[in-house]
Amino acid sequence: MSTAHSSPRGGVTVGTLSELPPLEAGAVIYLRHWFSGAETREQMRLDFEVNFGPEMAEAAFEAFGSLCNFCATHGRRPLVRHGMACNCLGADENCFANLLASAAEGQQDDAQILAALIVTPRKASELTQLASDCGLLMQQVMGPRPPLQPARPDTATLH
């Protein structure tokens, strides 16, 4: 097995953006915007103003930026992202989106596990808190979520 030219595992396609609920899809799209440069960040800021309204836009933009910058600064490695127009969902993007959603929904144990995949365990609690703050803001705009599942399901089998 040769690893000389292998693709980063974090970029492996695990689904499509169209399969995600609104909060998670938004998290991936905005993650791509944040790390694609000043022009796309400005597009993101304008999108936040349209979607969040002027009162919440700045807080949401700052919260999302803090979350992304924390991942970049304290990440185990850079998060692998697909292109801006790509409908694929990469493994790292999926982890980030699920971190944001689980933290926003108050599923702290799941959020901690996902955070520890992105940053070292020592930084996971801090990342979880940032994800919770950001996710709660974004959740207000994305609309109501389905009821939470019980914390301890009878079985971990979905189908």
Rank of each mutant, 00 (worst) to 15 (best):
M1A: 00
S2W: 11
A4D: 15
A4W: 15
S6K: 12
S7N: 12
S7V: 11
G11R: 12
T13P: 14
V14E: 00
G15N: 02
G15I: 04
T16I: 07
P21A: 03
P21G: 01
P22H: 02
P22V: 02
L23I: 04
E24A: 02
G26N: 08
V28P: 09
R32Y: 00
H33T: 01
H33G: 02
H33F: 06
F35L: 06
S36L: 02
A38Y: 01
M44L: 09
F48L: 10
E49N: 01
F52N: 01
G53I: 10
G53E: 09
P54Q: 13
E55R: 03
A57N: 15
A60G: 07
E62M: 08
E62G: 01
E62D: 01
A63N: 05
F64W: 07
G65L: 03
C68G: 04
N69A: 03
C71W: 11
A72H: 10
H74I: 01
H74C: 02
R76H: 14
R76C: 12
L79N: 10
H82M: 13
H82E: 10
H82Y: 10
C86D: 15
C88M: 11
L89D: 01
D92R: 10
C95T: 04
A97L: 08
N98G: 15
N98C: 15
L99H: 09
L99A: 06
S102L: 12
A103Q: 00
A104R: 08
E105R: 07
G106L: 13
Q107V: 11
D110L: 10
A111P: 14
A111K: 12
Q112V: 05
L114G: 11
L114Q: 12
A115G: 05
A115K: 09
A116K: 06
I118A: 04
P121I: 03
R122T: 05
R122W: 07
A124R: 12
A124Q: 13
L127T: 06
Q129P: 13
Q129G: 09
L130C: 06
A131C: 13
A131V: 13
S132E: 15
S132Q: 15
D133M: 14
C134D: 13
C134L: 15
Q139H: 08
Q140L: 02
V141T: 04
V141C: 08
G143K: 01
P144R: 14
R145P: 07
R145K: 07
L148K: 15
Q149C: 05
P150R: 07
D154A: 09
T155A: 05
A156K: 05
T157Y: 01
T157N: 01
L158K: 00
H159V: 14
